[in-house]
Design a binder for these strands. Structure first.
Lengths: 211, 211, 211, 211
DNA sequence: GATGAATGAGAGTTCATTCAT
DNA sequence: TATGAATGAACTCTCATTCAT
């Protein structure tokens, strides 16, 4: 569970990270309410009181775990979106690639877990959704930016790039709740590709260049 | 302990119903783990042990509440889908009406609540998802049936009606998580109409009759 | 620990009483803060949650124990004061008897314990003192009443019976903190008699009939 | 962390003193069990481990605080008693002055606090009482000494000066528990004077020169 | 000597569940 | 069937104390 050559644990910063990771794991597995601070501490390899030393209480720990997860998710998704350059020769193929990447981000275990967590605790901790929503917004905006460029280049026809982005994402992710059973089933790569393909097909029929 | 003028409580069946309702309310408000059997019993106006008399334990009570809710949701959604007859003069208008109804079902408080509950407890009680998935599947199939008829009638072009149905639903509901903040914000009717309109627009561009 | 022929515990009322008794015992032995609800429950022969069923929290339990103790103390002290009738032949002897009884009340284990408890928690729970003070006031007033009668009968000379009562009590109890080591040492009966005698001697010199 | 202009903290001895003072303050405010070493350390402006460097554990720290307080109290009380010289013209006035001083000592905030602390922890730390009792004894003895001189000079009549001293102290302090609400109420100077006056009155009637 | 971080033991309190009436 | 009382297990959080720096 430790990083490298150090004997067991290289410093306080590592401990904090271990705690966040453990918290996320346990919250994801058991849910916020059922997750025990004992269990989280054990998973992190520290004493229970150490957890309280870093994060003041369970609620703060949850927030810490969610924020960390949102940060990682944002980076992954933006990386995917950035592959959508207008320069590619084949628009369909590019869209399919990007769509597949986005789908893979969406279907990452941790992604499912945060969404489930936030969904579960929305009444108790509405601010968790703010964190998440900000992330999702930035992804949609980034995607809209790229679609705008394509529109300007005459390769797409859409008066409202943000709407187009939203619908693209909806076509991609819309059926995943069912297919992945909310993240408890691993969706085969082939199925992901098919979904991405169908999404792109419909998207291009609606917004693509008229032949 | 009962209200005076009323026939005092018309039998055990009413009490059972009161318990299921109370359970749903409390589970929805607090989440499964945090919901207390005391609170549910109080909300239902019965003693805690009475709850245990009807449902053996908390888990069973949750299942009961979810099943009841799924039944109601199924009925509502099917009623909406059935309005999608091929006979309508204006296909776009019909689709918009149906889409709006489906959106309204999707945005019902109870609908959000079940989805959040199932999402939250998917690891502990995977079978809850089965109940829900069966419901969702039947809705999608029913919608696919209607789209098939429209395709047969030459008013839509789609080789795969089930896929079209799925994508229509995705276009409708795809952005609602964000817009409704997972059910904690009431989405104005006008916004719902706009979303339905945009979904239908894209859907028709992709599958509609080529002019 | 149960009262009579009943198998183990004759009802809920007995359990409540057992809890109050146990609470007093443990609070007296360990102090409020150090006393564990586990220990109290065990001493009472019930489960910890049962204690919480009767008294909502530790604080309320403390109050319950103190009130019960104050009630008993009041009864005992008033019984002692009531023996101070004017009809006795020998005033000195009567005063000595009553003084001794009051001293015995003062030196009862439970009396020391409440005083220590209240003293210890006066900052956290100032209202405990109110309970106790009311009790002490009633005792002093009752004593003042009796001294008044003696004054009216010409057997004592004091313009302020309440002051006389207070001073009589002060002369009796004034040195007991030291002698009884705040209740941790049992003061021999002979010593108590001596103290009572000395108190009466001084009291009579100050307020007694001038020969 | 230290105040700017001052010589930064003149050495370890000052820190030790700061810790004892802080400990007394916190123990007095919260009680021994509830007082936290964190809080004491913070109040003293040092790190928690520093407290452990000076005093090995919480118990020792308590003893240190109590001893310091007892020393100060002893000095104050002896200073008061020493004012009781036989040379004064007016015995009553002298006694009233001394009595008032003793009452003031008794009603000092710190005095109440130690008494409450010792009373609270008598079961856990009986030796605290020894410290305190020794102090009280020395005060009583000193007072008895002065009363002896007055008796020898024929200005008082008592065969047992120590008893007279005890009773004088009892008449003074006997009602203060109630009046000062165990130290949580500040008793007005006038009331103190009145109590001292009444005590001296009774004392002189019992032990004073027969006219 | 002084500190920040870490910890094991234990605190009060809650809760799903059972039982006697 | 319906209930009030009882319970054991578990929970979050605290604290006196130690250790590496």
């Amino acid at each position: 569970m430790s990083t490298a050559g150090a004997p067991v644990m290289r410093g306080r910063i590592d401990k904090r990270q271990a705690i966040v990771d453990a918290a996320f794991t346990v919250f994801a597995r058991e849910g916020y309410a059922k997750a025990g601070m004992d269990v989280i501490a054990a998973e992190a390899g520290v004493a229970k009181a150490t957890v309280y030393g870093h994060f003041g209480d369970k609620e703060t720990l949850l927030r810490g775990a969610v924020v960390a997860s949102a940060d990682r998710a944002l980076a992954d998704n933006l990386a995917a979106v950035e592959r959508l350059t207008g320069g590619g020769d084949d628009l369909r193929e590019t869209l399919e690639t990007v769509g597949l990447r986005l789908l893979q981000c969406h279907c990452d275990d941790r992604s499912w877990a945060v969404r489930r967590l936030i969904s579960a605790e929305i009444n108790q901790f509405p601010d968790l959704l703010d964190i998440h929503a900000r992330t999702a917004d930035r992804i949609a905006e980034a995607l809209a930016d790229r679609l705008s460029r394509l529109a300007v280049a005459g390769r797409l026809h859409t008066p409202d790039p943000l709407l187009a982005a939203e619908q693209f994402l909806a076509l991609l992710a819309g059926s995943m709740d069912r297919r992945a059973r909310l993240g408890t089933r691993r969706v085969p790569a082939a199925e992901l590709r098919a979904v991405a393909g169908a999404a792109v097909e419909t998207f291009l029929r609606a917004f693509g260049p008229r032949e």
